[in-house]
Structure formats: C-alpha cells, structure tokens
Design a protein around this nucleic acid. Structure first.
Lengths: 195, 195, 195, 195
DNA sequence: TATGAATGAGTATTCATTCAT
DNA sequence: GATGAATGAATACTCATTCAT
C-alpha cells in the first residue's frame, strides 16, 4: 500500500511536469504562469507546492530531463557504421543533435540556452543506464588513451556546450550564420578537439 | 546650442544606462525593477520610456557594451610577446577574459550567459575603431591563410561562445569543475581549433 | 457545506458590485479606480480580478442591474387607475422614470447615457419574473392588436431610449430645455407613438 | 498682417482638429492620446495646449462639426419631390442619416452616441447659413401651425436624438434588431410624431 | 507663437504563495 | 494529501501637463 501511494504521488508529480512541458512548449518558460500549469494539469494550485518549490525548481528538472531525451535520441539515431568509428560517431552525434533541434524548434526554444550534459538524473532506471552507456561510448576517445575519464569528460562537456549555444543562436537567430553554414565549421572544430 | 541639446539628450540616456549598470551589478538583471533604475539615475519614470522600450531593450544594449568592454580589456592586457605570436595571443586573450571575469564576478553575473562577440556597436567611434582592430588581429590566423574572413570569424565566434559559457558555469557553479581546472582543457581546445 | 461556499462566493462578488455602485455614485464611473472599489469593498485587489475582467465588465453589469431597478421602481409606482388604462400607464411609466431620475440624479449620472431596456438579466429569479411581467404589460398595446410582440417591443425600446437620452440631457444639462418643459412634449410623443 | 496671423492661427488649430479626426476615426476617441494627435498633425505637444484645454474640449468641438456635416449631407441628399412634402421630407431626412452612417460606420463609431443637433456652431459662415436653412425647413411642420418654433424644435430634437441612439445601437450592435428591420418602425414613429 | 524633453502621479494587472477546509 | 478562494506586494507602463528655450 505504501508503494501504491508512492506511485500515486510520483504520478501526480509527473502529471504536473507533463503539463508544464506542454505549456512551456506553447508559450515559453518565461510567459508560463503556475496558474496555467495547474490548469493544464487539472490539479489545484496548492498541489503544485506539494511537489515543487517554485517554477524555477520545476524548470530546472525539466531542462535536465529534456536534455537527456535529446541526447538519447541523438545517440540512438547513430548508424552502426558511425558507431564503429569514434570520429564519425562524435560528429554524427552532434549532427543528430542539430537535426533534432531543427525538427523540434519548440523544444530548442523551451531549453533556451539550458541544454546541458545531464549530471544527476533520476528519470527512470532504464534511461539512466542507457545514458551511462552513451557517456561511456563518447568518453572512450581512442586518440587520447592517456587521458582519464574526468579529463575526457571536460572535452565532451565543452563540445556539448558549444553545440548547444551555437545551435541555439544559429537556428533561432541565424547568428552568426545559418545552422547549415555553421555545421561544417562546428564539425571541423569537433574533429580537431577530439584529435 | 543645438549641439549642446543633442549632447544633453544622449547624456540623459547614458545616465540611465550607467544607473542600470550599477543596479544590475548590485542585484542582478532579473531582480532590478525600472523603479530602481530611474531612482538610481535620478530621472522620472517617464524619461526611461523616452529612451528605452522596456527593460529587455536596455539590458540587450548593456550586454553589448559590456561584452565590448571585456573584450577590449582582455586584448589591451596582452603583452607584446603574446601579440607577436598568434597562438599565444589567442590563448592569452581567452586567459585575460577568464581573469577579468574571475576578478569581476559581478560583471559575469550581470552578463549572465549573454557574453557575445559584439557585432553592431555604437559605443564611441574610438571604441569601435579599436574593436575593429582587435577583430582583425584575432582573425588573421596564420595557420589557415586559405580561409576567408567569414570562415575565420565563425571559428573565432565559437571560441568566444565557448569561453563565455564554460567560463560562466565553471566560475559561478564550478561546473563541471573549477575554472582553474578547466583552463588547461580550454586552452588546449583553443590551440587545436586555431591550428 | 458546498452550498454555503457557493453562497459565500457569490456574496463576495455582490460585495464588490455594491461597493462599486457606491463609488460610482460618489465620483462617477470614469473617476473611480479599481483601487477605490476594492478598498470600499474591503477585499484584496486580486479578488476583483477573480470576478470581473476589468472595470468595463463590472460597469456593464451594473448598468443592467441599475436599469432594471429603475424600470421596476417606475412600474411599481403606477397607481391602479394608471394600470387600468394603457395610455395612462405608459405615460405614467415614463413620468415615473423621469421622477426617479430627478430624485436620484446621482443614479442618472452613474448610468450616464447607458439606460437601456435590460435584455438578458440574472439579478434574482424574483426580479426576473417581475421584469417579465412589466414587459408583458407594456407590450400589450390595445391600439395595435395586429402587431406581434417583436414589433411592439421595437416601439417600446424606442420610447425607453428616448426617455433615457432626453431625460439625461434635459435633467443634467437643461438641453434643449428643462425636464419640466420637455415633459409635455415627450408625453405627447409617447401618446402618438402608441396610438 | 494681423489678419494673416489670425488666419495662420486658425489654420494651425484646424490642422490639429483634422489630425484628431483622422486619429479618432482610426482608433476611436478613447484610445487616441494627445501624443498621437500632435504626431499626426506634425506639431509640437505644447502647441496643442495653445488651442485646446484638453482632449474633451477638442472632442466636443469635433462632435459638433461632425454632427453638422452629417445633417447637411442628409439634407442635401433630399430629392425635390421629398422636399415638396413635409412628411416625406422628414422621413427622407432620417433615412439619409441612417444611410450615411451605414456607409460611414467609422464616423458613427467616432460620434459614438454623441450625435446631436448642433446648437452653437462656428464652422464657417456658409455652413452656418445652410444649417439655419435646414432647421427652418424641418421646423415648418404644416400639421401643427399652432406650435411655436421652440416647441417644434423640441419635437425635432427628440427625433434626431432617437435616430442617433437607435441608429447607433442597431447599426453597431444589431440591438434590438438590424437597422433594416428598425427602419420601418422608426419611420412610422417619426410620421406619428410630426402628425 | 512654437517647441519637445522631462515629469511623476496615477492605474491596471499579475502571480507566487498561503491556509482553512 | 488535495483543494482553490483569497491575498496584496510588486511592477510595468501611460499620458496629460509643464516650462525653459
């Protein structure tokens, strides 16, 4: 019975997050009020505060799960050939991220510039496991076997941040150029970084 | 007389921007109200709206001038030896940016993650000229003489964005590590990018 | 318990309308701010927006209920003799409206020129029923039994509008003459219209 | 020279009124600010206050001149046959007013419910003279030679007010019915009033 | 006369948060 | 846990009016 209650609790919580996600996609994080979220979720206003401190609290968690989702999608979309070769894999990974954002601009707008490598996740055990696997694959840089995982993670982190930022500004504002014109430069940068 | 009036006009505008800058440094952009700004500037509320559409309008302009300022400072602080060698110059430039942010964390907080390469500026003619010179120096990458200016700018833009983002997260949140621990990685990345 | 809550809810709404009515009578609709209304009603500002979209929304509803009130008063004040004869009834009705406005000029000022025949009301069931009865009595014009209700209503509507407008301008501005001097003309007009 | 100055003065005044007229037609009286008017008129803000006390002052004058204009148009559009017979003339006059408002709804919206018989005018000598003539024609009711001018004017005033109000509500809000369905009723009313 | 920068009181509206039920 | 009516501080923005030039 305790389990069931816990399940119900997380269910209500999830209901709110899902509703918030839809609202954020529709109107942006800034312009979405808690009022809207609870209305979309069909729960009372007070219920929101049972599960979240405030909107920033909820947003942050949503940024993490959404970043996770994008990263997993981008990795899953790699072909076997790309996975076989580290250089092609990492460039293909970046490419898939851009393609995801191009195809899902509302998600990009929701994330704003908060696309990050998810550190502490608690989505689901399955997702956590898969994400760990993705990280392992991307950290195993054959060009620099001397590097420890921490160091390689810093390189990876920089690459992801770069993709997030330049992706955002080029897709949304065509700054400093369109994403299509930025791609070759970014891929060359990534290749140079991992080499 | 007309000149004087015009001078006075731009002066009022500058007064407001200066006041806003001080407020933003003190309390952050988000937590600063227009009320506070006009009080700090000793002008009437209506005067604000004579020169700016809203707070976002003013913020944006402040981000640009502040980014300019940081870039100019970082370039001016380069030693003659650093200027003589492109690789050392660009790494020294990044280093100076980090040092500036470390020494002036409120400025970093003000910029938030809005540190950008200033495209269209209208600070003062002198600053514009110097900034153009800075750009020219940084774009003249001897390792890739085949690249046109546009292409080189994209590389430069990516470097600046990377420094801004990783600088912000590492200095403010020690994410993914302290700035001191990130520096070697970032400098290595920059060196690889320009090579 | 639920009933009590519902009652309390509509009560709050009514509290605000009553307060607004007093404010409007005191200072006019235009010069009354929402601030004043909520202060008079002893409710929080946000509560106002829980029940009304804005001041115009509230005003409109107040115009309707006030118009209703005036019409009911004017009809109730008819003597049995007046009620017995249609011509005397309709002229007496108009006369009572003028007398009400003369005796309650603030109400006239509140209504401004928004005295209308209330179409869709939802004051109270009792008031609605009585109003329907008033309408029936006034629509039953014995001089024109051939007219349908719709047509007779158009005549009645015109009479009410005429009384509202000319009443307003003659009582408030003595335009084109005092109400006492306008009365004979208006009554003659009404008599001619219904004949 | 004095004359010329006076001419220039009235010219500037007229410029502002014309600009206000255009603004009012575009956005309504309520939503037009003095700022907009002076901008449309290409004069300085202070200039407005040299000629008008405030917006209400200007509006009132505009209501009068516009009402005049409508009345003159409606009278000019009468056919010789209509002019020959008083009953046909007054009904035709009302008809022309409605047609004008139907064809120029923005003017109707501008006037709001401020369509009145112009008492004190100061448009131009020519217009004033013509208006006096219109009044004379309409006041000469052959069915009631015993009435003095004052009395007849009260009847005429009531007719004009009625047309203004019912015209407004039926054209703009189809209340209580469309103007086309109201016309027969109104014409019958007018006929009865003048008889 | 004419200007238009500057004013600042005035006002509407939002929205996170609480708490009695 | 869940509700949702009530709160009221916070804040943006307008706009009529002035006055030094």
């Amino acid at each position: 019975m305790e389990k069931q209650q816990k399940a119900q609790k997380s269910q209500k919580r999830q209901t709110i997050m899902d509703a918030a996600y839809r609202c954020f996609l529709r109107n942006g994080v800034q312009k979405t009020s808690i009022d809207e979220i609870v209305q979309e979720a069909n729960v009372a206003k007070g219920t929101f505060y049972l599960y979240f401190k405030d909107k920033a609290d909820l947003s942050q968690q949503l940024f993490i799960t959404t970043s996770c989702h994008v990263i997993l999608q981008a990795f899953r979309a790699l072909t076997p050939e790309e996975r076989a070769d580290y250089d092609r894999m990492i460039v293909g990974f970046a490419d898939n991220i851009f393609d995801y954002f191009i195809a899902n601009q509302p998600v990009l707008l929701l994330l704003g510039r908060n696309f990050v490598w998810p550190r502490l996740e608690s989505l689901s055990q399955a997702a956590d496991a898969e994400l760990a696997q993705v990280r392992d694959s991307l950290l195993r840089n054959p060009h620099h076997p001397e590097n420890d995982r921490e160091t390689n993670f810093k390189y990876l982190y920089s690459i992801v941040v770069l993709c997030g930022e330049v992706g955002y500004s080029s897709i949304v504002h065509q700054q400093p150029d369109t994403i299509e014109n930025m791609k070759p430069v970014l891929y060359e940068i990534i290749r140079r970084i991992v080499h």
